[in-house]
Design a protein around this nucleic acid. Structure first.
Lengths: 139, 139
DNA sequence: CTCCATACTTGAAGACATCAAACAATATGA
DNA sequence: TCATATTGTTTGATGTCTTCAAGTATGGAG
């Protein structure tokens, strides 16, 4: 049995892991001509369209910031704004087909780069999945 | 035994974990008046002084970018530049006492926020540590 | 000494980030 | 209903981040 790492040691390793993964993501995004903020936005939209407000909340930034990011994505036809049918103040942002393709390409590239996961056995993958779910609970 | 998650599922969770942790870090940094780039820089310097060049390499950004970041940190007396004794082209950047205190404060705040790790048993911590080391090998 | 590489800085241009202020549409309360 | 407050989004100002091209100074190889 390996010795128990301290919380500080584990956080240090966590920080390293996060930096590595984040850098990979940024690189994959840059290879397709996107900034990491733009790629993060497309990632959120991959699941479902969202209003400007909820995008800003999810990405933890100011609403006025989203305006600029969506402006630039829309100018490249990767997303489109649609006025909500139920509340005319709200604009729902959805991926275009080109946007969908682009974010898929980034995810594919990440899968190829992320070779570390291939080092794990099925049991280890399941255990890592479980542990991460505990440490970073959804929502 | 839990079912084996697919690589895609695991990467999805990994992305979520990374986003969460990164957002926490950015928030902790902002609470002390630093941007995340500035806080990341101080984190690197916490271990040892480094030249502009190696900082840029570690943080995966252009060297000219570091100039601006270090300029702003130096203006606030959080770091200082020192001309290398062996190569007068090189400037070594070191934390000041104030810089040391500030990055310590951010780390402390992260420890308080990162309550997920407290949910794990000693065995689970050791296992998470081991798995992360495999997936994100040092260097 | 000449030539080239290296370490860093500067300047320009675009993106990111936050704040205050504006605007339109909706909700609330008398 | 009408006046008022709240909400969703945008605009403008300011500062930071990021990259690129170009410049300066130092070091090293021939």
């Amino acid at each position: 049995m390996p010795p128990t790492p301290s919380k500080a040691q584990l956080m240090e390793l966590l920080a390293h892991s996060v930096s590595t993964h984040y850098a990979d993501f940024t690189t994959a995004a840059a290879d397709t001509g996107l900034t990491s903020s733009q790629a993060k936005t497309l990632t959120v939209l991959r699941r479902a369209p969202a209003s400007m407000r909820s995008l800003a909340h999810t990405l933890a930034c100011d609403a006025s910031n989203m305006t600029g990011i969506i402006d630039r994505l829309e100018k490249r036809d990767l997303v489109r704004r649609e006025v909500s049918a139920t509340d005319r103040r709200v604009k729902n942002v959805a991926l275009t087909e080109a946007g969908q393709k682009l974010i898929d390409a980034i995810r594919e590239r990440m899968e190829q780069t992320q070779t570390g996961l291939d080092q794990l056995s099925d049991e280890e993958r399941a255990e890592l999945f479980r542990l991460l779910t505990v440490v970073f609970p959804a929502q």
